[in-house]
C-alpha cells in the first residue's frame, strides 16, 4: 500500500517536471535559434516479492516471480536539434545554418561557447558579435566604411568599399559540430557549452562533407518548438497527473477501510 502511494507520488512528480519542460518550450516558441527539449522517463527499480526459482513445493519451483515496480523518474530532457523554420529579415548579418553546425562565439571571460542563433551585429570596433556582444570566433572584422556585406553559403564574408568595384574578403565564418549535440549544456541566452558527453567541438568551413550545413544570409532560424505538439503533450501530462492522483486517493480509501476493520 505504501508502495502504491509512493509510486503514484513519483508519477505525479514526473508529470510536474514534464509540464515544467513543456512550459519552457512554449515560452520559447518565438525565441530565434531555440531548440525544444523533450523530457524522458524511466521506470524505477523493482521489488522482488517472490523470487523466480523459489521452491513452490517440494517438487516444483516458481517459474516466474512477482515483481512490484516502484514508480518512475525523469531520466533526461534531451535537446531536439531539428531544423527550425526560416524567416526573412533582410539584415545582412542575420545568418541561418542549414545543417547541424553551430556558430562559435567567445564570451567576455574568454570561454568558447556555441549557438544556433545567427543574429549578428557589429560592435564599435567593427567586429562581428552576437546579440549578447560575444565575439564570433574566428573573428571577422569589417571596416567602418564597408558597404554591401555579402556572406556566401560557404561562410566567406566579403564587402565593397565606396567607389571601388572589386570586393574585399574579410574572412570565412567557421562552424562547429559535436559528435553528440544532445549532450551539450544549455547556458541560456541561446548558448551551449561543450561537456564530456557532447565531445569537443570540431571546426570546419560551412558546406563541407561533415554535415555542418551551409549559411543563408538575411534569414533567422525560428524556434523549432511545435506549439501543437506541445499542447498535445500538455494534455497527456495533465491527464497522467490526474490518473496518478486517483491512485493516491484509492490507496488512501483502501487504507481507511483497513483501519475500519477494527471497530
Amino acid at each position: 500500500m505504501i508502495r502504491a502511494l509512493f509510486s503514484a507520488a513519483s508519477g505525479m512528480n514526473a508529470q510536474q517536471m514534464n509540464v515544467d519542460n513543456i512550459a519552457n518550450n512554449l515560452a520559447n516558441a518565438n525565441t530565434a535559434g531555440f531548440k525544444a527539449r523533450r523530457a524522458q522517463f524511466q521506470d524505477l527499480l523493482y521489488q522482488n516479492v517472490i523470487q523466480p526459482g523459489a521452491s513452490a513445493s517440494q517438487q516444483s519451483v516458481v517459474p516466474t516471480g512477482l515483481q512490484l515496480g516502484l514508480g518512475t523518474r525523469a531520466a533526461s530532457d534531451e535537446i531536439v536539434f531539428t531544423q527550425g523554420d526560416f524567416s526573412e529579415t533582410d539584415n545582412p548579418l542575420d545568418l541561418v545554418i542549414q545543417g547541424n553546425g553551430f556558430f562559435q562565439v567567445q564570451t567576455p571571460t574568454g570561454a568558447l561557447v556555441y549557438t544556433r542563433a545567427g543574429q549578428f551585429q557589429l560592435n564599435a570596433e567593427g567586429n562581428v558579435v552576437d546579440a549578447n556582444g560575444n565575439l564570433l570566433q574566428p573573428p571577422i572584422t569589417l571596416p567602418q566604411n564597408a558597404q554591401t556585406v555579402t556572406i556566401a553559403p560557404d561562410g566567406t564574408v566579403s564587402y565593397n568599399l565606396p567607389n571601388q568595384t572589386a570586393s574585399q574578403t574579410a574572412g570565412q565564418i567557421q562552424l562547429a559540430t559535436f559528435i553528440n549535440p544532445a549532450g551539450l549544456n544549455s547556458l541560456g541566452q541561446n548558448l551551449y557549452q561543450p561537456t564530456n558527453a557532447s565531445g569537443n567541438a570540431v571546426l570546419g568551413p560551412p558546406g563541407g562533407q561533415e554535415g555542418l550545413g551551409t549559411l543563408l544570409q538575411g534569414y533567422t532560424e525560428q524556434s523549432n518548438v511545435s506549439v501543437v505538439d506541445e499542447f498535445v503533450n500538455l494534455i497527456v501530462a495533465q491527464r497522467a497527473y490526474e490518473a496518478n492522483s486517483k491512485v493516491v486517493k484509492a490507496a488512501d480509501e483502501m487504507y481507511q477501510q483497513i483501519n475500519n476493520l477494527t471497530k
Partner: peptide, 17 residues
C-alpha cells in the same frame, strides 16, 4: 493491495518510453 501496487506503477509510467 499488491494489485494496486502494480496499477500504481503502471500509471506512474504512463509516459515512460
Amino acid at each position: 493491495m499488491e494489485a494496486l501496487d502494480l496499477v500504481a506503477n503502471n500509471l506512474a509510467n504512463a509516459t515512460t518510453g
